[in-house]
Design a protein around this nucleic acid. Sequence first.
DNA 1: ACCTTTTGTCATGTGACCCTGACTATATGT
DNA 2: ACATATAGTCAGGGTCACATGACAAAAGGT
Lengths: 67, 67
Amino acid sequence: MKNRLKVLRAERDWSQAELGARLDVSRQAVNAIETGKYDPSLPLAFRIARLFGMTIEEIFDDGGDHG
Amino acid sequence: MKNRLKVLRAERDWSQAELGARLDVSRQAVNAIETGKYDPSLPLAFRIARLFGMTIEEIFDDGGDHG
DNA sequence: ACCTTTTGTCATGTGACCCTGACTATATGT
DNA sequence: ACATATAGTCAGGGTCACATGACAAAAGGT
């Protein structure tokens, strides 16, 4: 699952730790999601979308259709 | 996390087992999500949204802003 | 009455998603 | 040289999101 977290964070000049604080998760969790180690839970995805004022679909991309 | 899965399924007259097959998950997983036992993973939420032709936000609701 | 379908639930197991703490490496500033 | 900030990673642990298999209750069809 790809995501635009790193770009959105860079646009606001936030560190991974600061983004983690705003999302109420650890900086390691932010790093893991950014580097594609794993996907966020649905509740966390909602918090991310709300923080950036976008929909989940605008931030995350699971590749469209999957045969 | 509330969701409209049961209604959307009823509109199409699908059983939980049939929805599970279309989503490639077990019928118990569908039941657990419908009855609010737990939330789907983000990839599964994408598959659900795509199946019903809606956005994730139109199907799931985590309560808007919550601190 | 019997059979099938559907839903709900329980038990057990595995891997994903979080945590804290620690360590390394790079960059910046004094 | 030293301290600070940031990013990346690993170890160890806890809870949640799946799986399969089984059991029981309710509804419908014959």
